[in-house]
């Protein structure tokens, strides 16, 4: 779709949205902090931090490094785990002013199914983002995402447990993303998220040691926008389900460019960490840009 000729989306998955800007998993918690600041008004959907079956402390520090041009992170899916998400987080998030999509990460196909089955019992969340692309954990994570057959198995396992919409968050780190996207579509996904962070590393040349405790991390940066545009373009031409773009968005024009590349929704992440008011700033900027066309 071209936002210049066709206008902006006003709904996604049948949910009315104020615009195309959504919040990327891992950069907004469960939306509560932003809602408390009154900053969800221009947000289409909130994609939660990853929920795992067991609580996870996350990786050893240091977990984050700003290279100047981008951000390296190695959080390691730190989260309170399924039980506390059900008993504490989802009740607290029930009054969220925008719909919540739960990001789910597991170490096995069957665990994806059972975790989503458990989450079905609680909450009024709008859907799921199936995380097969985290670069910061040993087991599971992007090991699933690089293999289309594994993407298909995970997607089917989740599909069997829920009628809520599902998007599958893909990895740019190896494998063929177009094949992985097709596998997700053929297995019942309602969208694909393109994509997670790029595997990166920073070394201190004086010591030869990595600056992040785990060594490698996920890299995000406004400089990566063309890499995301290319992948959204390629995937968008190969599947009929919507593409949710994620990565590299900094300015209003970046959102419109990703829509022009074929995205139906555009997540912001690293830019949001820097400016919690980014969604509202983007919405105002987009109105201004389209007004002039």
């Amino acid at each position: 779709m071209n936002p210049v000729t066709e206008g902006l989306p006003d709904s996604f998955w049948g949910i009315p949205v104020p615009g195309p800007v959504a919040l990327a998993s891992g950069t907004c918690g469960f939306g509560l902090e932003l809602d408390a600041m009154g900053l969800l008004e221009d947000v289409a959907l909130v994609f939660s931090k990853a929920v795992t079956p067991e609580p996870r402390d996350g990786n050893a520090p240091p977990r984050i490094h700003d290279t100047g041009y981008g951000l390296l992170n190695s959080i390691g899916l730190a989260n309170p785990g399924l039980d506390r998400v059900l008993s504490e987080v989802l009740p607290a998030a029930a009054g969220l002013s925008r719909p919540l999509v739960l990001n789910v990460a597991c170490e096995s196909v069957s665990s994806f199914g059972s975790t989503v089955a458990a989450l079905e019992a609680g909450g009024s969340h709008a859907g799921y983002e199936v995380n097969v692309s985290c670069p910061n954990v040993e087991a599971g994570g992007m090991a699933f995402g690089v293999d289309p057959a594994a993407v298909a198995s995970v997607t089917r396992a989740v599909r069997l447990e829920t009628r809520r919409p599902i998007t599958v968050k893909l990895t740019p780190n190896g494998g063929d993303m177009v094949s992985a996207a097709k596998a997700a579509e053929d297995s019942g996904a309602d969208a694909v998220t393109v994509c997670n962070t790029f595997l990166g590393m920073k070394l201190d040349w004086r010591t030869g040691r990595p600056v992040l405790a785990r060594g490698v991390g996920g890299y995000s940066s406004p400089a990566l926008l063309p890499l995301v545009v290319a992948r959204v373009w390629q995937v968008g031409r190969a599947v009929r389900i919507p593409v949710i773009a994620s990565g590299g968005v900094w300015e209003p024009g970046d959102v419109l460019e990703l829509l022009a590349a074929g995205a139906s929704l555009v997540q912001v992440g690293t830019g949001l960490l820097r400016r919690p008011s980014l969604p509202s700033e983007l919405a105002a900027g987009i109105r201004e840009l389209l007004c002039g066309t």
Partner: peptide, 15 residues
């Protein structure tokens, strides 16, 4: 003291 990604409690970067 810690490196921080966001400062407002969401990124998990400052354990």
């Amino acid at each position: 003291e810690s490196r921080m990604g966001c400062g407002w409690g969401v990124c998990g970067g400052c354990p």
